[in-house]
Design a binder for these strands. Structure first.
Lengths: 137, 137
DNA sequence: ATTTTTTATTTGACACTCAAGTTTCATGGG
DNA sequence: CCCATGAAACTTGAGTGTCAAATAAAAAAT
């Protein structure tokens, strides 16, 4: 029974994060998959189409047109691969990196807000719990 | 600095939940918004189009065609409203309720898995933290 | 009784998703 | 070296979600 309540709290947390992300992204004139691509590129640096598709859990077919649109908005750049002429490296442009940093900052601010009513001890416990749970996937 | 790590753990948690949800739903031949509608109807019982749209954070225009498709798959049923002839009540069918219960069960199982390496004390702390954070939105 | 608001639907433009097919290139076996 | 196989990216078509704007019907307000 206790587990059910915990499950409920997790689901609610997930729903609220999803909704927040949706709203924040739309204000920037981007879609969820688009900002997701910028996040991955921002965190892991430049990578090939195939790699990015794997990180995003989608196909290169889907990604091609998504990158077309991000390129048109000048958030991202296609560069030739050094050694493999089949591959293409996707890089953030300066405006793309700035968009990533802004979004990252919003995430940080949200975390601060969410955590503001927790004690230091609770924060540490939460951190431990999340790390353990993230490994369990 | 500590807050940044906590933020990172939250984002990672969110990403993994999103990815899990995506995969699970696709196996059932449904889309994310479709299962979301079934979840809301399963938890809060029947409701009008407008109410459901509000719960889902979308417009009734979007919802109309989504409900069309769920109705075609016999997960959901349109019923006339008792007193307001403008309104339409959306109900889960038996197969729709079963789909909801199955999905709910999977969520529960995921929670069990995630939580399996936490002590009882940690689980209680996590529960407290999530409740506090959910209120802070 | 007339006007305004609410509710649902329809439609058009755009985006994401996948699968299937195409092109270009890399790699390994003959 | 040549060819077969596989890999990487692109293209296309069908289906779905998203929003805004327009429409129709009914309730609420004046």
């Amino acid at each position: 029974m206790e587990l059910e309540e915990l499950n409920h709290a997790i689901v609610e947390f997930y729903e609220k994060l999803s909704s927040w992300e949706h709203d924040v992204v739309r204000e920037k004139g981007l879609t969820l998959p688009q900002i997701h691509a910028l996040e991955i590129l921002g965190i892991h640096e430049s990578m090939r189409m195939k790699e990015l598709a794997n990180w995003m859990g989608t196909t290169t077919g889907t990604l091609t047109v998504l990158i077309d649109r991000l390129e048109k908005k000048d958030y991202v750049r296609r560069c030739p691969h050094k050694t493999d002429r089949r591959s293409i490296i996707i890089e953030l442009t300066d405006t793309g990196r700035q968009m990533f940093l802004e979004h990252d900052k919003l995430h940080m601010q949200l975390t601060e807000t969410m955590v503001s009513d927790l004690t230091q001890e609770e924060r540490e416990c939460l951190h431990r719990c999340l790390n353990t749970m993230n490994k369990a996937f």
